[in-house]
């Protein structure tokens, strides 16, 4: 499938995947982040159960401490 990840088209071999699986595949697991899919924020405790489908618009931002 092909998704829009932070405004860039990215291809995956999977037909369907959870948010957790996408983070594992892309090795995005080490930082704290906010994820929105098609404009809807995905709570952290729903990463296992939220499904990403072909054509989805996935937005991610990284949260770093400091202020």
């Amino acid at each position: 499938m092909r998704i829009l990840l932070n405004n860039r088209e990215v291809d995956f071999e999977e037909e369907i995947m959870s948010v957790s699986e996408m983070l594992d595949i892309k090795k995005f697991t080490f930082r704290m982040r906010i994820i929105k899919i098609n404009g809807i924020l995905v709570p952290k405790d729903a990463y296992e159960t939220t499904i990403i489908r072909n054509g989805d618009n996935v937005q991610m931002l990284y949260l770093m401490s400091g202020g």
């Binding site: 704290m32 906010i34 924020l41 709570p43 952290k44 931002l61 990284y62 949260l63 770093m64 401490s65 400091g66 202020g67």
Partner: peptide, 30 residues
């Protein structure tokens, strides 16, 4: 905020409970 856990908490709360309200987040300034 300073701590990222607080940043996450604010973003999640505003996005869920105050839909449509823009949040301007800070991340990465060290």
């Amino acid at each position: 905020f300073d701590r990222k856990e607080m940043k996450e908490m604010l973003i999640e709360t505003v996005q869920n409970k105050m839909p449509g309200l823009p949040v301007v987040v800070a991340s990465g300034l060290a």
